[in-house]
Amino acid sequence: MTTTPGFWDIGPHDPIDVEATWQGFVRSVSGQVIEDLVPHPRTFENADFLFPSVPAVAELKEIKTEFEKSDAFVKGYLSLVQRLVDEDPDWGRRIWAGEGDYPNWFSGEVIRLFRPPISRVLKKANRQIKETKEYFNIVDSTGVLIFVNDGFTALEPHLVRALACSLLANSYSSIDCFLYITVNRYVEVHGGDVPKLLWLPTFSDRVSASMSEFINDLGRRWYEFLEKKIGQFTVPTEEIKAGPVLSRAIVLPDEKR
């Protein structure tokens, strides 16, 4: 939790249902919810939303899991710690005594441990977007992954975003826009003095200017919609940008482990 005076005067809004909120939002901006269009049973793995005017297909993924608690991550992390000890048997004592620091390779290797779970999210979303575009005969590069990260706080948002984009650079070609947002998780943005919710799109080089304009406009309309729903501040529209944003999730006192 930040110690900046006055940073958190009113506290976060009560948690809202992300999927239901997005369904309501999409309907309000003349988008379509796939389950409204194609009833069960469906013959394809569907994405969540269709924006006919673009046309764009969007899949919503809400990340609630703290990936670092998985058995695979713990095993990998312990292996890295063992490597530290093997390289420097006195490492642990010096760290606890404040006399040393982690070697340069360590943080990069820790971040690599998060690649498999994030890759699984991207892989499934890519398949859903691809099959939905095929069903509706959409050939343009207009697949959007709405990556809602309200639960995964072990990595800072800009690192999660960078890791996902590095995976998307050479794989999962049905995802043309990676949209990183938060809904119930506020963040502290470097250089800012108020908590914020994020809307951070990253586009592949396949995306047209009209598509990027559509996503940026959608962000403004999303904040207007959310503002009415939660009844308090979110993020000024001028904060919507695709450039680097250094931030960290705000972990509330009752969430600290």
Rank of each mutant, 00 (worst) to 15 (best):
M1E: 04
P5S: 07
G6E: 04
F7R: 09
F7G: 07
W8Q: 13
I10S: 15
H13D: 06
D14V: 12
P15H: 10
P15N: 13
I16E: 05
T21E: 11
T21P: 02
W22G: 08
G24A: 14
R27H: 07
E35P: 02
H40R: 13
P41C: 13
R42G: 07
T43V: 08
F44I: 00
A47K: 07
L50K: 03
F51D: 01
F51Y: 10
P52Q: 03
P52I: 02
V54A: 08
A58I: 01
I63D: 01
I63Q: 01
K64D: 02
T65K: 15
K69N: 07
K69S: 03
K69F: 05
S70F: 03
K75G: 00
K75E: 10
Y77K: 11
Y77W: 09
L78C: 09
S79N: 08
L80M: 11
V81H: 11
R83V: 00
R83F: 04
R83S: 06
V85E: 12
D86I: 08
D86C: 07
P89N: 05
W91Q: 14
G92C: 08
R93G: 13
R93Y: 12
I95M: 15
I95P: 08
I95Q: 13
G98Y: 05
Y102H: 12
P103C: 10
W105Q: 11
W105G: 02
S107V: 09
G108R: 02
G108K: 01
R112F: 09
R112C: 13
L113Q: 06
F114E: 05
P117K: 06
N126D: 15
Q128W: 02
E134T: 08
D140N: 14
D140S: 15
D140V: 10
S141F: 14
G143Y: 02
L145V: 00
L145G: 09
F147G: 03
F152T: 00
E156P: 02
R161A: 00
A162V: 09
L163W: 11
A164L: 06
C165H: 15
L168N: 05
S171M: 10
Y172W: 10
D176P: 09
F178T: 07
Y180D: 00
I181A: 04
T182N: 01
V183R: 04
N184G: 07
E188G: 05
V189F: 08
V189C: 01
G191A: 04
G192S: 11
K196I: 00
L197T: 10
W199E: 01
W199I: 03
L200K: 15
L200I: 05
P201T: 06
S208E: 01
F214T: 01
D217L: 13
R221T: 00
R221N: 06
R221Y: 05
R221M: 07
R221A: 04
W222N: 03
W222I: 03
Y223R: 11
L226I: 09
L226N: 09
E227N: 15
K229M: 09
K229G: 09
I230L: 06
G231Q: 00
F233Y: 11
T234R: 15
T234V: 13
V235N: 15
I240C: 06
K241V: 03
A242V: 04
S247N: 06
A249D: 01
A249T: 04
I250K: 08
V251R: 14
L252C: 02
P253I: 09
E255M: 12
K256M: 13
K256H: 14
R257L: 09
